[in-house]
C-alpha cells in the first residue's frame, strides 16, 4: 500500500523532540527494553524500538559507527553490485569481485518503519559475493513512497535508484547476524506490544470504574470483573515474557530463544487483550472518541510485522523437537523443559 499516508501524528516535529531523549549507546539492555515498552505505552511517533533494540546493536556488531538520531531497519532482496569492479580479478565472472566493498544498490525496500522520521536505515541483504551484507543508507539516498500500517504509523517503501554506498558504510556479516536482526526485531515488537497492552489495561480499568449503567459502575458487575481479570492476566503474561527476554539480552546462550518466546507470546496475546479491552469499552472504544484505538490498532499491526505468532511458535517448536540438541541422549522430551528453565 503505497498511497499517501494518513498518519495521526505529524511525524517530523515529535520525532525531533524524541531524538533528544535517546539514551547513550552504552545504556544497559534492560533499560533499552523498558524504553521500548514506554514507546508502546505512549504510542511514541518515532522508530524508538527499532533504533535502540535493532539498528544500533546491529551496527555495533558489524563494527560500523552509530550515527546520532533515530534509525530504522530494512531487509529484503535488492540488486547489489560492486561499485568498483576489479577488472583484473580472475575469480568468477566479471563483476564478481571489487577493489573494495563499495556498493551500487537498486531496488525497493518495502514497508520500512518510520523511514520518513529516520536519519538513516540499516539495510541487511545479500551482497554480490553471495553472503549477507549490512550497510547504512542515509535518508537523502532513498526516494520514499509513503505507506501506513493499521494504526497509521509510517511504513514507507524506499526506492533505491543506483545508490552508491561507500565502503566505509558497508560490512560483510555472518549469517548469525541476519538471525540476530530477526530475533531483535521480534523482541522490539514484543516490547512495544507489552507497553500497548498496559495501555489497554489502564484505559479499560478507568472506563469500567467510571462508566455507570443500571445505577452502578461497570466494574461492579461480576461478568465484567471476570473479563477484566483475564485482561490483566494476559497483559501480565506478555510483560513477563518481555522482561525475561530483556534480562537474557546480556546472555549469549539464551538471548535468542527467550526473544523468540517473547515475540511469540506477545503476538499470540494481542487477540485476547484487544478483544477484552474493546468488549469492556463498549461502543465508544470502537470509535475515534476513545484513545483505545491508539493501542489496539498498533497491536494488530505489530503482531504481524517481523513475523506473526505462527512463525515464532514454529521456530520454538522446531527447536524443542529437534533431537540433535545440546542435551542429546535418550528420549529427549525433557528438552522442552530444559530450554524453558535455562534462561
Amino acid at each position: 500500500m503505497s498511497t499517501e499516508s494518513a498518519t495521526e501524528h505529524p511525524a517530523a516535529p515529535s520525532a525531533e523532540r524524541a531524538a533528544d531523549a535517546l539514551p547513550p549507546l552504552d545504556a544497559p539492555p534492560t533499560t533499552l527494553v523498558a524504553l521500548a515498552r514506554e514507546a508502546g505505552h505512549h504510542h511514541t511517533p518515532a522508530p524508538l524500538a527499532e533504533t535502540l533494540l535493532v539498528a544500533r546493536p546491529l551496527l555495533a556488531a558489524a563494527g560500523l559507527a552509530v550515527p546520532d538520531g533515530h534509525l530504522t531497519v530494512a531487509t529484503g532482496p535488492l540488486d547489489v553490485r560492486f561499485a568498483h569492479v576489479d577488472t583484473g580479478s580472475r575469480v568468477g565472472p566479471t563483476g564478481a569481485a571489487g577493489t573494495d566493498d563499495a556498493l551500487r544498490v537498486s531496488g525497493t525496500l518495502h514497508r520500512v518503519p518510520w523511514a520518513r522520521a529516520a536519519e538513516a536505515a540499516v539495510v541487511l541483504t545479500e551482497g554480490p559475493w553471495g553472503g549477507p551484507v549490512l550497510f547504512l543508507l542515509e535518508a537523502a539516498e532513498w526516494r520514499q513512497v509513503t505507506g501506513a500500517n493499521l494504526a497509521g504509523e509510517p511504513r514507507d517503501d524506499l526506492v533505491l535508484l543506483d545508490v552508491t554506498v561507500p565502503a566505509a558504510r558497508v560490512r560483510r556479516v555472518p549469517a548469525a547476524l541476519v538471525r540476530e536482526a530477526e530475533w531483535r526485531s521480534g523482541l522490539a515488537r514484543a516490547a512495544l506490544i507489552a507497553g500497548a497492552a498496559r495501555r489497554c489495561v489502564e484505559l479499560t480499568v478507568a472506563h469500567t470504574a467510571s462508566r455507570v449503567q443500571f445505577g452502578r459502575p461497570l466494574s461492579h458487575f461480576q461478568a465484567v470483573k471476570q473479563e477484566e481479570a483475564k485482561l490483566v492476566e494476559e497483559a501480565a503474561l506478555v510483560t513477563a515474557a518481555v522482561e525475561a527476554a530483556a534480562a537474557a539480552l546480556a546472555e549469549p546462550d539464551s538471548a535468542e530463544f527467550t526473544a523468540w518466546l517473547a515475540a511469540a507470546q506477545a503476538a499470540a496475546s494481542v487477540a485476547e487483550i484487544t478483544r477484552i479491552a474493546h468488549q469492556l469499552h463498549g461502543a465508544i472504544g470502537f470509535t475515534e472518541l476513545s484513545p483505545l484505538r491508539l493501542a489496539t490498532t498498533r497491536m494488530w499491526s505489530w503482531r504481524d510485522e517481523d513475523g506473526g505468532e505462527r512463525a515464532w511458535q514454529q521456530r520454538i517448536g522446531r527447536h524443542v523437537l529437534d533431537g540433535e540438541g545440546d542435551h542429546g541422549g535418550e528420549g529427549d522430551g525433557d528438552r522442552l523443559w530444559q530450554r524453558v528453565t535455562s534462561g
Binding site: 513477563a240 523468540w260 499470540a268 514454529q314 517448536g317 524443542v320 524453558v340 534462561g343
Partner: peptide, 13 residues
C-alpha cells in the same frame, strides 16, 4: 511444531 511452540511460550511466561 508451531502448536508445541505456542505451549512452550505460554508455559515459559
Amino acid at each position: 511444531q508451531s502448536r508445541v511452540g505456542r505451549l512452550t511460550a505460554r508455559l515459559s511466561a
